[in-house]
Write a protein that binds this DNA or RNA. Structure first.
Lengths: 223, 223, 223, 223
DNA sequence: CGATAAGCGAGACGGTACGTCAAGTCTTATA
DNA sequence: TATAAGACTTGACGTACCGTCTCGCTTATCG
C-alpha cells in the first residue's frame, strides 16, 4: 500500500524529469573528471558531453560540488561489509574493498572537493557521509564485533585505530605515494594487531626510567 | 684577483631584488589564505595587501601554486628531530611537533594545493618535498634508529608504518575529523608498538583454521 | 510545409541578445573616445559606463577596433548624396556634409584606428568601407554624372581628383591644421573646376621651351 | 648681454655621452617600426637591438613619441626645393621628392604617431614642424614665387591649394589607397592649374540661374 | 481537450580572476 | 656622471568559467 505517498511527494505537476539525463550527467562528470582533473573541470564540458545544458544540471544539483559528490558516491556504491568470525580476515577484506574503490578515483579529486566543501557545513557533512565515513564505518563495526568477541583490547581508542587503518584508504588515495596491495593490507593489519616492537614491556620500562632521571635532573637544577 | 668568484654566483648585475617584498608577499599569502581559504584565494588580493602588484609576484614564483607552497613551507620551517635513546619518546615527540605545525595550517589548503599540483610533476615533487616528506623523514629516522637498536622488528615495512603513524599528521590535517592531542599521540604510539589484539597468536591460529575449512568446502563443492 | 521558412533567418534559438546593450555600448564608446581619446581608451571603462562587462562586449565585437569602427560608422550614418543638375552645388554639398560629419569625430581617432587596422586586411577593408569610402563614393558619383553631362573633361583621372577634393574631408580631419567652412569648400570647388593659373597655355609653352633647352644643353655636354 | 654665456656650454663634466648610442637607437627604431609597425612597437625591443637599455633611451628622448618623431624626421632629412623659372616643373618636382620620401615610411606610423601627439601641444607642434610642414613649405614657396611671377591668380587661397596638392603626399601616405607616380603628379598639377571643367563660365551661369529660381520658389512658398 | 506547469536546449548575461604585456621610473654596480 | 642591467609600479589586455536569466519549445497532468 502506497498510502504512505498520500501526504508524501508534492504532486508531480508539469513535465516530469527525464531520468536518463541524470545518468548521462553523472557519467559525463566522471569522464570529464578523469580526463581533465578537478581543476580544469568545466561544467560546460559535462553538459556538452551529456548532451544537455548547464541550467538542466543546476536544476538537479545546486552546485558543482554537489554534482561531483553525487557522481563519486554513486561510483563507490554500496560496498559489502564482511562478517565472518575471523577478525583478521574481516579487517583485511574491508580495507581491501575500499582501497580498491578509492584507488579507482581520479587522482586530484578528493582533495579539491574536500576543500571546496570546507566553508559549507552541510556540504562538508555530505562529503564526510558519502566519501569519508563508509569505509570507516565498515572497519568500525568489524572492530566493535572483535572487541565484543574479546579479540581486541577493550580500552581501544576507536577513532585513533580507524585512522591508523584508514590511512591505507584515504591517505594513500590522496597522496598516491605508495601502492596498496592485498599483501600490504595484510601486513598492516598484522602491524596493528600485534605491534611492531620486539619487546614492548622493555621499552616501557626504559622510558619510565628515563623520565624519572629527567625529573631528578630537573629537581637538581631547580634546587 | 677576484679568486672570490671561484664559487661565482651569477654576478648580481642590475637592480637587486627587494627582499622585503618576498617577505611581505609570503606573509600576505598566509593571511589571505587564512581569511578566504584556498578557493577564493586571489593573487590580486595578496598583491594589494603586500603593497605590490601581480607582475612582481609572478617574477618570483611562476604560479600561484609555487607561491602558496613557498609560503606554507616557510611556515613549517625546520622542525627539530629529537634523538634520545628512548624510542617511545622520540616517536611521540616527532609526531607531536608536526601535528601541531600542520594543525596551524589554513584548513582547506592542503587538499586543494595537492590537487593543483597533480598534473605538474615538478610541482608535485616540490609539494611532496616541502610539505609531505619532512614529518615522514623525521619519523623514518627515528624508526631506523630504533631498528638498529633492536627495539623494533627488523622486518618492518617502513612505508606502511609511516602511514599508520603519519595519519595523525597529514590525514587529520586534511579531514579535520578528530583532535590530535599529545595524549592521543602517546596512545597511537602504544597501539603501534604493542598492537591492539589481546592474544594475537590465537587470532592467527583461528584464521588458519578457517582458511583450511574454506578450502575444504570449496573442494567439496567443486567435486 | 515549412516552405515559408525557406528564406527564413537562421532561427533565433537561445536567449536573444539585448539590443539595448548594443546601443548603450556604442554610445559609451563614443563618449569615452571623446573624453579620453583613442589612446587611454579602455574597454573596461566603456563596459562600466554602458552598465555591462567586457565579455559581453567581446561577444559582439571581436576586437576593440571593430567596436570603435562600428561606433564611428554608426555616427556617420547614411549621409545623403545630393543630385541636382548643378555640378557646382552638388560637389559643394557633398563635401560640406561629409566635412561636417568628420569634424565632429574625436580628434585622434581616425589615425590610430587606421593604424591599428593596418595588419589585418579584413579589418582594414572594413575601415575603408565604412569611414573612408562613403564621402569618396558620393563625390565620385557626382563627378561621373557631371562627366556624362559634359560638364567635366572626359579624360578625368577620378582617383586623383577625388583626393584633391577629399583632402577637405579626411586630410583635414586628421591633421586639423585648418578650418573647413562652406565658403572654403566653394573656393576649393572653384579651384578644382577652373584651375588656379592665370594663363595655363602660356605656362605649358614656357615649360616646353625649357625642356627643349635642357635637352639641348645635355646634348651639348654629352657631345 | 649674454655674451658670457656664448661659450658657456653646460660644462661637460662626468662621463660624456656615447653618441654612437644615439645613432644606434634611431636606426633600431626605424627597423623595429618597419618590422612590427607602430602598434606592437616596443621600446624594449629597440633597446635590445641597439645594444642598450630603456633608461638610456629615456635619458635622450622624453617619450616614445619623441623618439619615433626624431627617427622619422632624420630619415626625411633636408629635402631640396627646386627653383627654376618654370612653375609646372617646380611644383611637380617638389611633390615628387616628398611623395617618394613619405612612401618610404612604415605604413601605419604617420597616423598613430599623429594621434599619440594629439593631447600634448608641444609634441604636436614638433610633429607638424618635422613631418607635416616641410613639403607644404616647399610647395608654398613655389606657389608664392609663381604668384609674384604672375603665373597664378593673385587671390589664391594658399592653405586650400596646399591641401589639394599635398593630398598626394600625406593623404596617400596615410591611407595608401592609390599609387603616386610621377605621371600622376604631373596630371595632378595640370588639374590644379587649368581645372577640370570643360566650360567653367557656363557652369557658373547655370548655377546662378538655379539659385535665383530656388530663391523665387522659396519666396513663393513663404508668401 | 485545452489550460497549466514544469522540463528542456540554447545561449546571453553580469561577474570575477586569470596570467601576460609593455610603459615609464627606480636603484644598483661599473666604467 | 653616464651606462648597463634589471627590478619595480601601474594599468589594461583578452580569456575562461562561473552561476543565473530569458527565450521558444516539448511533454506531461489536471480541470
Amino acid at each position: 500500500m502506497q498510502g504512505a505517498s498520500e501526504s508524501a511527494r508534492p504532486a508531480p505537476v508539469g513535465r516530469p524529469r527525464n531520468s536518463q539525463i541524470d545518468e548521462a550527467v553523472l557519467c559525463a562528470t566522471i569522464e570529464v573528471l578523469e580526463e581533465t582533473g578537478y581543476h580544469r573541470f568545466a561544467l560546460e564540458q559535462v553538459a556538452r558531453r551529456a548532451g544537455t545544458t548547464k541550467p538542466t544540471i543546476y536544476r538537479r544539483w545546486p552546485t558543482r560540488q554537489h554534482l561531483v559528490l553525487a557522481a563519486l558516491a554513486g561510483r563507490l556504491g554500496q560496498l559489502p561489509v564482511p562478517d565472518t568470525s575471523c577478525t583478521i580476515c574481516d579487517l583485511a577484506e574491508c580495507l581491501s574493498v575500499f582501497a580498491a574503490a578509492f584507488q579507482r578515483l581520479p587522482p586530484d579529486v578528493l582533495g579539491s572537493l574536500l576543500s571546496d566543501c570546507a566553508d559549507n557545513p552541510d556540504l562538508r557533512a555530505e562529503f564526510m557521509n558519502s566519501l569519508f565515513d563508509p569505509p570507516r564505518r565498515a572497519v568500525e563495526q568489524t572492530l566493535l564485533r572483535a572487541i565484543r568477541r574479546g579479540d581486541l583490547r577493550s580500552d581501544l581508542d576507536l577513532d585513533l585505530t580507524l585512522d591508523q587503518l584508514g590511512s591505507l584508504v584515504h591517505y594513500r588515495a590522496l597522496f598516491r605515494h605508495a601502492q596498496t596491495t592485498d599483501a600490504e593490507i595484510e601486513r598492516a593489519v598484522e602491524n596493528m594487531l600485534c605491534g611492531i616492537a620486539t619487546d614492548y614491556p622493555a621499552l616501557v620500562e626504559h622510558n619510565r626510567r628515563l623520565s624519572a632521571e629527567a625529573q631528578a635532573h630537573a629537581h637538581h637544577i631547580d634546587g
